[in-house]
Design a protein around this nucleic acid. Structure first.
Lengths: 195, 195, 195, 195
DNA sequence: GATGAATGAGCCTTCATTCAT
DNA sequence: GATGAATGAAGGCTCATTCAT
């Protein structure tokens, strides 16, 4: 994030940017809060209200809802992406790393009311969102799976995309149903991968 | 069910009924078609249009959307329920029966665009639907799981509700995504149950 | 009612009529009951249901709601009309007769949930209803008023139509409001007529 | 009311508000016009059309129909409320004041097609409206009645609520019926109060 | 004649999105 | 740039009324 954009503009320009970024931060925080409370499909008006800005401001910064969602979760997705290699390095076996990573993924999704649902839907207009998540995480997951296959711990033949979709799906609606523990079921799924 | 179809009823006495029932069939077919095309949450208007009837007709026959959905899928749910014991009798092991039954379940869900999604949602107004599915199928699934636990093939501790929810979730959005094979993933989940 | 219609038809025709009249009686009773329970604007379907007949039957007998209402209350309106002269004959003074008659009128209206409201509304389609009530009762009321004016008990200058409309209005919504006693207020109105 | 109109507010700070308020004025005028023409129960669409705005605009400003009605008549209700004490001060006797006030009330209601009807109905959703009218006017009327009782001009025992309801009822449907003069009848009612 | 199924207009309400200020 | 007012499509639901059986 340090050098995220801003190719060295003059001081005034920069301050404007800084201003805008601060505003954007407010937006993202508000959106995150509303997403948690009411799901990713919450009315734009609610998000604007939470942020204390006009709705137009939301639209200026994020032309589509998908853009907003991406922005909201970018940090966490990045962290997730970065966690892959790290876990591989620090875990006893590739399979253990996979398990831990999937757990992180579950932790991410389960707390985002409705995100998992949006992720799998073929709703037009969410392609960007889809693409972003996949572009960023599929390679990471592929890497983990490959390693675990290579170590002989799991069977081959399952694509990262598929596994992630499965994990994502298992997380849908998990929040709020005490009889359903997404993490346990995901555990089953990953266990099913073992040779 | 015995006298459900009125072939052989009094000639005129049943004429209205026959008419209405034929119409109801049209409605169910139309609803099924629309459900496949646009999901179970499709506008009532669309279903009416597809059936070539007025909206009022839908409401007359099915006061709530849940009623309609139940009616549309009743036959298949019943068949599913009845398949459980049969499979247990005719399969080599309880686990094999469980696998086959789950496969049937997946086959059912995968072709019903949006049904799996509705099934897990806590949308108010779908309680009837929920209840119907669970009432009918959870006992069957429980029976299969118990048998497989008893035969020592799978670990214990997973409730039918949870497993079914998991399977259901894995089927969400499966249709139309060629890179995602719900059946395979469900296979993984069930495999994960093995000791 | 004795010779209400039926100009001496043949026996068969007559029996048919008798049949129809019995049916019509059922309809009227049902309508009266529903009117009391849900007001004069109750859905036709409800009335049909209460009568245990199809809606079409209602429409056959009473093309418009006004026709039905008239039919339902015809007996009571006739009784009211006939009570006028009688009261005049049997009361101490014309004003007393007027008071008693108005009381009967109030008693009639107050128990007909919504009737008073319909009576004053200029809803198109209720002209028949209006006309019937007025044609039948205005002359009676006029007679009473005239007598009371003649006896010097009340001031002149108020038309029966106006007084009846006033009484009718005071009865609107009386049922079900314990803080509002239509009869008392009507008493005030009639008291106001005194010299 | 003091700072209700914003002549003199900060130049730009209030521009939106000014805009919206102007619009609200348009809405109120349109609503008033439609209320006169079609009654207080006119479809929201009609009001929007009359105002030349979208329906959403109505809903933005007035979440419920009752809110709209209240807003439309607030000024007049307030004026009515304030007229009570004034009349008491400036009239020869309390009874005269009562008569004049009731006359104002009649003048108000008679021009509001359907308002009187709504006022007496127990329609759910109009409670706010009811409450507002009663809260504001019953005390005023009570005051007038009490004074007239105290002065020995009228009989006691009639609550303001009841009298107002009576007056209100007498005004229902008055507009457009040349044979019915609500004011005269109300006069009769009030005359009836005299000892 | 009776039936009640079907029709469809009509109303309400919610929000995503645009755009004047 | 920000604001939030306005728009209007979309969808749900309820009957009055017609008409095939």
């Amino acid at each position: 994030m340090v050098n995220d954009s801003d190719e060295g503009a003059g001081p005034a320009a920069r301050s404007k940017r800084a201003d805008a970024r601060r505003n954007e931060k407010t937006l993202l925080d508000a959106a995150a809060a509303v997403f948690v409370a009411s799901g990713v499909e919450a009315p734009v008006r609610d998000i604007a209200a939470e942020a204390g800005v006009g709705m137009g401001t939301i639209y200026r910064h994020f032309p589509t809802r998908a853009d907003l969602i991406i922005a909201v979760y970018r940090h966490q997705v990045e962290a997730l992406a970065e966690a892959g290699p790290t876990l591989l390095d620090t875990s006893e076996t590739p399979y253990a790393a996979l398990g831990k990573w999937v757990d992180l993924f579950v932790g991410f999704l389960v707390t985002k009311h409705g995100l998992a649902a949006v992720l799998q839907t073929d709703n037009a207009g969410f392609d960007t969102l889809h693409a972003y998540f996949l572009d960023r995480l599929v390679p990471v997951c592929t890497h983990l799976l490959d390693a675990a296959v290579a170590s002989g711990e799991i069977r081959s033949g399952f694509a990262a995309y598929e596994v992630m979709r499965g994990v994502g799906n298992l997380c849908i609606g998990a929040e709020g149903d005490s009889r359903y523990d997404a993490r346990r079921l995901v555990g089953l799924l990953i266990a099913g991968l073992r040779r």
